[in-house]
């Protein structure tokens, strides 16, 4: 045994590449993003300009925040599929309540379902130990039902998009989208929370080895409940931002963002099994997906093809990360 171990063995390039990718997952991601932008520029010379950058950022930001929800829940080995419904609910309630209500009241009303759904998710996952996927799928179904009932009650009053959300969602100041004013603090907060606070450590601990975390005195259900409420709140805020961008309140407003948000977190290097990953990668993942979507639109790939591609990406990346981890 010993002579095999001490024998100088040439480390193959593939192995080194694997190790490099495992140690610094951000660099290959940035390279990939860059390659995609270059391809775009080749296909449509001149498309990459200041306006395009601002536009890409505008569409990447809601996706990146929702992907943040997925990142945080995935760190604990979960997933939050209710973010689409939550975002849609808060956007729709905001747009309909602003007609008759004070903006602050409308905002609070819009955030109420987010908190409730987050709470139910948290209790279901944390206390009753339902699989997060099933639980969040169930609450999103219930949420959609409530939204349909609610829609009937406000048909008469109509809807409007508050000027402030309009400004935040679509406005551009000195070439920078105003949405950055919301996104930068949120991103800094998430990154700070995950890396520097006790709560962030707990998320990694729970996801890495739940039993060990529990035996060291972590109150699992409290962590999970807080996490899912936080995730829902972020989704609700995303909904408000997104309605300012899309400007058409509908009952399926943010649904198309759910699958890409999962894909963005997975591409960004967050393990769907928990314990590994971070938000910086997710942001780049969201940017990659937004650029990829532009690319696919230019190539005239239909929506169905896009979904197939996203599914393949999730599977391939997860399998690849699994290999890298097993190798170490």
């Amino acid at each position: 045994m010993t002579d095999i171990a001490t024998m100088p063995r040439p480390v193959s390039f593939a192995r080194r590449l694997k190790r490099f990718m495992a140690d610094r997952p951000l660099i290959p991601l940035i390279i990939l993003l860059f390659i995609l932008v270059v391809i775009l520029q080749i296909l449509r010379p001149g498309i990459v300009n200041e306006r395009w950058l601002a536009n890409t950022a505008k569409f990447a930001i809601p996706l990146a925040i929702l992907a943040g929800c997925q990142t945080m829940t995935m760190l604990t080995g979960g997933i939050d599929l209710s973010v689409g419904t939550v975002a849609t609910m808060s956007a729709f309630i905001m747009a309909t309540q602003i007609v008759n209500q004070d903006p602050a009241v409308a905002f609070l009303l819009a955030m109420l379902p987010a908190v409730l759904i987050g709470l139910v998710n948290g209790i279901g996952v944390g206390v009753f130990r339902v699989h997060p996927l099933i639980m969040t799928l169930g609450t999103s179904l219930i949420g959609t039902g409530f939204l349909q009932v609610y829609q009937r009650t406000v048909i008469a009053s109509g809807a409007k998009i508050p000027d402030f959300l309009n400004w935040l969602g679509t406005g551009v100041t000195y070439g920078f989208p105003n949405a950055l004013l919301l996104f930068v603090p949120v991103a800094v907060l998430i990154v700070f929370m995950l890396n520097r606070t006790g709560f962030g450590r707990l998320l990694y601990a729970v996801g890495d080895n739940e039993r060990a975390a529990r035996l060291s005195g972590v109150r699992y259900w409290q962590v999970i409940t807080a996490l899912y409420i936080l995730s829902s709140l972020l989704a609700g805020i995303t909904g408000l931002l997104y309605i300012g961008l899309i400007k058409a309140p509908s009952l399926s407003l943010a649904e198309p963002l759910v699958l890409p948000s999962v894909a963005a977190a997975v591409i960004g290097g967050t393990s769907i099994f928990g314990g590994r990953g971070g938000y910086t990668g997710t942001i780049i993942g969201a940017l990659i997906l937004t650029v990829l979507t532009t690319l696919l639109t230019i190539l005239q790939m239909p929506e169905g093809g896009r979904r197939i591609l996203f599914g393949c990406i999730v599977l391939f990346v997860t399998a690849a990360y699994l290999r890298i981890v097993e190798d170490r």
Binding site: V262, E303, G304, G305, R307, L309, G311, C312, V314, L315
Partner: peptide, 15 residues
Amino acid sequence: VVTLAMLFVLQGAAL
């Protein structure tokens, strides 16, 4: 995870 990815793929194929 596999069946979740397949869910995306099959949905896309249906579309």
